[in-house]
């Protein structure tokens, strides 16, 4: 009889137990247990009490990412008359909020929050996205098929599409200046440009401590919460605010579970067929015509 060591028995038992445990738990819990973000990853703490709405960050982003000329100069404050969203021409925008809780208007810079467990990434069926150990969520435009699933999946409405090329629409969003800065340990261009240091760059885990310290050291200045510490499983970009977050445009109903789990379950399986329908159609068409061409050639020869 083959001797079974206690160790292998234990291992097998453990593995079985874990598998059984996982299978029995809801999908969201499974995802949470799988990954809590890279421990050494970097982030940015955005302090709304410091931002003055100067838009230097927007101007710096435009230059760094070689984005097209804006419609209006970056020192034009008329843009604050509407709430803007990130677009394929502006990876970050600053919005102004008049709130009942504050005497002065508050400004909030938005960009990709570089989630620990990004919904864009998990929903992308061609794996165009990558979360780097430095904390950036980047994408490979040569792989992107422009299906826009990530646009639907992102809880913060971040990814935008460039339609300049009708046949190859491609996703466009903030990449944390990964290529030019973050991978070399440098802060993104917007952070460096900010005169008020409303944007603080550092290790994500240090920034969380720093955020709580700021709240503690300045009684009455902040709401006792760091937005992004736990939302959707945690984000690299996090926010401090002096007024309740829902008054400055934050979605406070996102919960703490990563979007990863339910996106995986329905977005990539059911609607994927719908979203990739144009791509499928083009694919079928190409296949058909190629076959036809081949047949024609055969006939000729």
């Amino acid at each position: 009889m083959k001797k079974v060591s206690r160790r292998s028995l234990l291992k097998a038992g453990l593995a079985g137990g874990v598998a059984a445990g996982l299978a029995g738990r809801p999908a969201s819990a499974r995802a949470t247990a799988s990954f809590g973000g890279y421990p050494e990853s970097m982030g940015v703490l955005v302090d709304l009490t410091r931002c003055i709405g100067c838009r230097s960050c927007e101007a710096a982003c435009n230059a760094e990412q070689h984005l097209p000329e804006p419609d209006l100069p970056f020192d034009d404050t008329s843009v604050f008359e509407e709430k803007r969203r990130t677009t394929e021409r502006a990876y970050t925008v600053v919005n102004r909020y008049e709130t009942p809780a504050a005497e002065h208007p508050l400004y909030r810079k938005i960009q990709c929050n570089h989630c620990n467990e990004p919904a864009c990434l998990s929903s992308c069926f061609v794996n165009a996205y990558r979360k780097t150990p430095e904390g950036a969520v980047i994408y490979d435009p040569t792989v992107c098929v422009g299906c826009r699933t990530c646009m639907v999946a992102c809880p913060f409405y971040v990814p935008a599409y460039a339609y300049s090329s009708a046949t190859n629409p491609v996703i466009k969003k903030c990449i944390f200046c990964y290529d030019t800065r973050l991978r070399y340990g440098r802060p993104p261009a917007c952070v460096e440009a900010c005169p008020q240091e409303a944007l603080t760059f550092g290790r994500r885990q240090d920034l969380i401590k720093m955020g709580h310290e700021r709240i503690r050291n300045h009684p009455g200045r902040y709401v006792d919460h760091i937005y992004g510490e736990t939302e959707v499983g945690g984000t690299a970009w996090m926010y401090l605010s002096s007024v309740p977050f829902d008054q400055v445009g934050f979605d406070t109903d996102l919960g703490t579970a990563p979007i990863i789990s339910y996106v995986k379950e329905f977005l990539t399986i059911v609607p994927m067929v719908l979203t990739i329908w144009p791509a499928l159609f083009v694919g079928f068409h190409l296949l058909a015509t190629r076959k036809e061409n081949a047949r024609d050639k055969e006939k000729k020869s």
Partner: peptide, 13 residues
């Protein structure tokens, strides 16, 4: 130039 302002302001559309 950085701010697309002054002499570098975008043409009004």
């Amino acid at each position: 130039r950085r701010f697309h302002a002054g002499a570098y302001a975008p043409a009004q559309r």
